[in-house]
Simulated assay, not measured.
Amino acid sequence: MVWDPQQYLKFSGHRLRPAVDLLMRIPDVGPRTVADLGAGAGNVTKLIKERWPSAAVTGVEGSAEMVAAGRKAAPDVEWSHEDLGHWRPAKQYDVVYSNAALHWLPNHAALFPSVMEKVAPGGMLAVQMPRNFLAPSHVLIGETAMDGPWRSKVEHLVTPPPVEGPAFYHDVLAPLSQNIDIWETEYLQVLEGENPVKEWTKGTWLTRYLDVLEGDEKAAFEAAYGMRVAKAYPRNAAGQTLFPFRRLFIVAQRKG
């Protein structure tokens, strides 16, 4: 999947809020090393470095476009261009932080213990993932995929939600943790502009489908989804679009 940093950052304020909420919930364990998994365009990685200026912070990101943007946003951070699914660092980190990234990877029953193994004893794992996949914004992408001449090209992308419920992650991480805090927050995002929910998903989940298509078919798919999602999220009297968005948070301290 090819990431477009400019498209992703169209709603940078709304996307940044849960990242900051997660960062502020991490106890100050005085980390010397921090890894930011799925560091994206570096706007959050920069804040991590500002919170712990003496720590060696590494931004791990699989998109070359995002790494290039990240190096500009956070030049005092070490950047590693590698696929998160193959992240095998030679050392453990005092804090492993991941904002809106791990839902792109499969098999969370194995993934989360594997990531926790990269946390030093007494260190912190902090994760935020969207859990909005049963909302119209995402369900309608699948409906569009299954209802058009493009179906044979994109139907393999219509899969069950990639993020489980809170109890699943508690059961997976509790045996490895001495403290664990898991919660959900639904943000009521007030968006401006023409069909902003389409533009939001175009920066993330919709991109998976558009990347498979080309030319007129790609434009037709986007337009068909755009019509559906505009009806699902109409503007209010003030011309704004209210977009509720649920997110799952995990802060776990590894057993020491």
Rank of each mutant, 00 (worst) to 15 (best):
G148R: 01
H86E: 15
L105F: 11
G123V: 04
H86L: 15
V154A: 08
P161T: 14
L191Q: 10
E143L: 12
A90W: 10
W150K: 03
A135N: 07
E217N: 00
T159Q: 14
V212F: 08
T204P: 04
P121H: 10
F133C: 04
G85P: 02
P166L: 13
Q128W: 01
M129K: 04
P161F: 10
D211Q: 13
R208M: 14
T159C: 13
P136R: 13
V172Y: 02
V163P: 05
H156Q: 13
E143Y: 12
L125Q: 03
E143S: 11
K198Q: 14
P160H: 09
P196A: 11
Y169V: 01
Y169G: 00
V119R: 03
T144Q: 06
T144W: 04
H138K: 09
R208K: 14
V190N: 14
L134I: 06
M146I: 08
K153W: 07
D216K: 05
V115S: 07
G123W: 02
Q128K: 01
Q189F: 10
L157D: 10
K153H: 09
H156V: 13
G142H: 05
P130S: 09
H170D: 01
A109M: 06
V197P: 09
P113S: 07
E192V: 11
P106I: 08
G148E: 00
W104H: 14
V212T: 04
S137Y: 08
T207S: 15
W104E: 02
D211I: 11
L188G: 12
H108S: 11
D171K: 02
D181Y: 03
G203R: 04
P149K: 15
V95K: 07
K218Y: 03
A90C: 11
M116G: 01
N132T: 08
N107Q: 13
P162T: 01
F168Y: 10
